[in-house]
Each structure stands twice: as structure tokens, then as C-alpha cells.
């Protein structure tokens, strides 16, 4: 009886493939982009198709921090804290022009890009971005996750995060 009893693959490929289709996002929604985030996650665009639909509203359980909207100086300590609470592996998406660079707000109140306080993996331009752009960004991130190395080490041997 010809049954497949084992398969061979590289560990990194296997883990990357698993991780790529189980992105649990934490939507850190602050501003206008949140309206487009609602559109992306509901019926017509539906991020469920990419395995990235189920928002976890606790940073401990999520692995993709979506920074949706303007981050002000007042908000900066909050987002820094949320990021620090997330477990590895984690990725960050800067959703929209304000999260990327401060957008057209160049003043005393607005942080000029969230990458000044936390590292960002993928940026989405647009004010706000169209849902298709968000889906494109999720797919690009998935490609990247699939191609990354995924070391599985005991906690003591894990290196501190490289930026």
C-alpha cells in the first residue's frame, strides 16, 4: 500500500509556511485609517482569506502590530509599551502616511513616523491607503515571513532583537 509516511523539508521553510498563514494582528487603531481598517477586515475585502483576520486585542497573543493612524507624542509611550509586551517573533506594519512619516502633520504634537520609537517591517503609503494596498502589504509581509530564518532556540540562547 503506497502511503506517504514521511516528508522531508527544511525546518525554516516549514515554520515559515506555518507562521505566514497564522498572522494574529493587534490593530492599534487611532485615526482615520481605522475606517479603512474596518473596511479591510469586513465583508468586501476580508483579510480572513490571508489567515490574518482574527484580531487579538492583547499584545501577548499577537504577532503583527498594525499601527493604524497618526501617532502623537502623547500616544508614543503607549505604543512603545504595547510593542514591548509582544512576544517574539513579531512584526510591525505602519499603516498609512501618518504612521510612516507623520504625514502632512509637521507640528508640535505629532510623532514624525512610528519608526522613531519602534522598528517597522512594512510601510503602507496613502492617506488613508486603499484596502487593496493593505492586502498587498499583508501578502508582501507573508512572503518575507516565509523566507526568513526561524531559529527555535531555548529562551536563554535567544539573541536580543536586531534592529
Amino acid at each position: 500500500m503506497a502511503m506517504m509516511e514521511f516528508l522531508t523539508t527544511r525546518k525554516d521553510e516549514l515554520v515559515g509556511w506555518v507562521r505566514k498563514f497564522s498572522i494574529f494582528p493587534y490593530p492599534f487603531v487611532t485615526a482615520c485609517c481605522g475606517m479603512e481598517f474596518m473596511a479591510v477586515s469586513s465583508t468586501l475585502y476580508d483579510t480572513d482569506r490571508f489567515g490574518a483576520a482574527l484580531p487579538r486585542f492583547t499584545p501577548r497573543q499577537s504577532d503583527l502590530l498594525m499601527v493604524v493612524g497618526t501617532i502623537t507624542h502623547k500616544e508614543a509611550p503607549v505604543i512603545k509599551r504595547v510593542y514591548d509586551q509582544m512576544c517574539e517573533p513579531k512584526w510591525v506594519m505602519a499603516f498609512g502616511a501618518c504612521a510612516t512619516s507623520g504625514g502632512f502633520y509637521r507640528n508640535y504634537a505629532v510623532l514624525q513616523g512610528v519608526d522613531r520609537v519602534i522598528p517597522v517591517d512594512i510601510y503602507i503609503p496613502g492617506c488613508p491607503p486603499r484596502p487593496e494596498m493593505v492586502i498587498d502589504a499583508i501578502m508582501k509581509l507573508q512572503e518575507r515571513i516565509a523566507g526568513e530564518r526561524h531559529p527555535i532556540l531555548p529562551f536563554e540562547e535567544q539573541e536580543p532583537e536586531k534592529v
Binding site: 507624542h73 502623547k74 508614543a76 509611550p77 509637521r106 507640528n107 508640535y108 519608526d115 522613531r116 534592529v163
Partner: peptide, 20 residues
Amino acid sequence: HPLRKDYPIDREQPIVEYRL
């Protein structure tokens, strides 16, 4: 007081240390 005319528009007062 940021809305006073003598407060420059781009004088930021961050409370988190910048990363890079």
C-alpha cells in the same frame, strides 16, 4: 502654550526616547 504666536509650530517635546 502651543497656540501662542511665539511658540514655533515644529517645536516638539517627545516623551519617549527615539530609537534610531
